[in-house]
């Protein structure tokens, strides 16, 4: 799944570790989500989106799930 986490993080001058600490996860999980290797659960996606002050749809590209 494509995400805008990397861009948003850079915009906020935030490191992966800082984001991981903010959303109570590990740096490795943030890396995996950014590279599309791992799809975050709904609560984690919500926490990440909330951390950037955006909605889940604005952070995660959900177009592939559109019918």
């Amino acid at each position: 799944m494509k995400t805008k986490i990397k861009e948003l993080r850079k915009l906020k001058k935030m490191s992966q570790e800082e984001l991981a600490l903010a959303v109570s996860t590990t740096r490795q999980t943030i890396t995996s989500i950014e590279t599309g290797k791992y799809i975050a659960s709904l609560p984690l996606a919500y926490k990440i989106a909330k951390c950037f002050g955006l909605s889940i749809e604005e952070v995660f590209d959900l177009s592939e799930y559109d019918e």
Binding site: A20, L21, S24, T25, T26, Q28, T29, S32, A40, L44
Partner: peptide, 8 residues
């Protein structure tokens, strides 16, 4: 965080 991480 590592203990409660969903990916781990």
């Amino acid at each position: 965080n590592a203990e409660n991480d969903e990916r781990c």
